[in-house]
Design a protein around this nucleic acid. Structure first.
Length: 435
RNA sequence: GUGGCUGUAGCUCAGUUGGUUAGAGCGUCGGAUUGUGGUUCCGAAGGCCGUGGGUUCGAGACCCAUCAGCCACCCCA
């Protein structure tokens, strides 16, 4: 019985061409994070079960995560998300750290579930968090960064939309304004989250089902539906317009707009993770008709660090998965043509391996990445190999080159050939690799 | 976890109501007088028809199971 060549279900092999794309995406994430003064951190892929139980229910953890017992009988989880981990790290050094903390990481995360479009069992996710800022400028910075990343990937602002809401505002609206009790509010919030996927009629009857007869008679359903149709902060009913979150969101939208980000809007129907978000939440949606979905999301979660027995730290963060990003880049034709890191492929003409070692070493010392063909095959075959590997240049070394010190450098894209000194070769290749 | 669709060459697929030795394109490899690739031309290799069972004189086609993939649901960091 032959061994299976497939990677583990829901996980991917990264061949060099795949890894190149991943590196491209991660590099842009890193560049933008660092441009905003964020520092990279990392942590073990394994965490004790308990840190997830505090936030999620035991049932969900057991069904949707990889849990196992180690040899010391400890319950261990392969991390399904980074937020508890980073909260743990901040809590552990709460006193020593210099706030505000600007941290980011690109962890691989595992979730035990059935793979489908945009969702695998293993994926990588950019996590950006800002700890220690209470004001709305924290949200502004997060959303500006996310926007800067889209721009850095070559996206234009009509390709995506930023949506904003506030958990506090929604709580207030459902409880005081519509008049729902806790259970009703919870059920209704879940339904609102699914609204986009449902037909309107179905949604209305589902809402009716979630309400008690008392609420229904009080006109809660009508009030709720009218509220959900509000597209603009200014159209909110007077009772809600006074809520402090409203002016916060308004201020945020204004600041974003002043910063040139015009594709952000208020969306009262945005629910996102009821569990630990405490105030403003945001998502970025792909506007492509084939992929109308959330690509990244985040918000304020002021309570998580406090779960570790230290005073809480105000926190805003977001996460962005590599799979949703790749889908976005493909659909919008933003995938760049990526070349290998190798600057030139060295083709040897004749049996001169030993003699060619010297110029090759010299070039490498100058920072040039070279792959040498030892095969002894015909020059044409060596060129073919370089071409297949998508390496841009071939450096030919043979008797005449060694004698004259002038090397034949061929650009495989243009077909252009030049006879150059080693230094000139290095200069040409350096310039080419920086393009 | 639930449901639907799909598994034929490395990839994309064709394969008639079940009927001889299983097909194409692309890719791969070899060649077209030995220091120049991509295009072109010639040639070759490559398949337990996902796996196991069943029906049948006969199965790549039909049935069951199983595994895998895709899609939706559930759930959502």
């Amino acid at each position: 019985m032959a061994l299976s060549k497939q990677p583990y279900k829901g996980a991917r092999d990264f061949y060099p061409s795949d890894k190149r794309l991943q590196k491209y995406m991660f590099d842009i994430w890193r560049q933008v994070c660092e441009r905003y003064g964020y520092e990279e951190y990392d942590a073990p892929i394994l965490e004790p079960l308990e840190i997830y139980l505090a936030k999620t229910g035991e049932e969900i953890v057991n069904e949707q995560t990889y849990v196992f017992e180690d040899r010391g009988k400890r319950k261990v989880v392969i991390r399904p998300e980074m937020t508890p981990t980073v909260s743990r790290m901040v809590a552990a050094q709460r006193q020593e750290l210099a706030y505000p903390l600007r941290w980011y990481s690109i962890p691989n995360l595992w979730r035990y579930e059935r793979p489908q479009r945009g969702r695998l069992r293993e994926h990588w996710q950019l996590n950006v968090d800002l700890f220690g800022v209470e004001g709305v400028e924290a949200e502004l910075e997060m959303i500006s960064m996310a926007d800067a990343m889209f721009k850095a990937f070559g996206a234009s602002s009509d390709m995506y939309e930023i949506r904003l809401n506030s958990r506090k505002l929604v709580d207030e609206a459902l409880a005081s304004y519509v008049g729902l009790d806790k259970q009703e509010a919870h059920d209704v919030a879940k339904l609102i989250d699914k609204k986009a996927k449902m037909e309107r009629g179905k949604f209305i009857s589902a809402i009716d089902g979630a309400l008690s007869s008392k609420s229904r008679q009080g006109g809660a359903a009508e009030k709720l539906l009218a509220l959900l149709d509000v597209k603009n902060l200014k159209k909110l009913p007077a009772e809600l317009a006074k809520h402090p979150s409203v002016s916060e969101i308004e201020a945020l939208l204004n600041m974003l707009s002043n910063g040139g980000i015009k594709n952000a809007r208020f969306d009262i129907g945005l629910m996102r993770g009821f569990d630990y978000y405490t105030d403003i939440i945001f998502e970025v949606f792909d506007k492509h008709p084939d992929n109308n979905r959330s690509m990244l999301g985040g918000g304020r979660y002021d309570g998580l660090v406090g779960l570790f027995g230290v005073p809480p730290v105000p926190t805003v963060g977001f996460g962005w998965g590599d799979v949703t990003l790749a889908n976005f880049l493909e659909l919008h034709r933003l995938m760049p043509e990526l070349k290998p890191e190798t600057d030139a492929y060295v083709a040897l003409a004749g049996d001169i391996q030993a003699a060619a070692a010297k110029p090759v070493a010299e070039l490498r010392q100058l920072g040039i990445n070279l792959a040498v063909d030892f095969s002894g095959r015909k020059l044409g075959d060596q060129l073919k190999t370089a071409s297949k590997k998508s390496i841009r240049y071939v450096l030919v070394i043979g008797e005449s080159e060694l004698k004259t010190g002038k090397y034949n450098l061929k650009n495989l894209q243009s077909g252009k050939e030049q006879s150059l000194s080693l230094k000139a070769v290095a200069k040409t290749l350096k310039e080419a690799s920086q393009q």
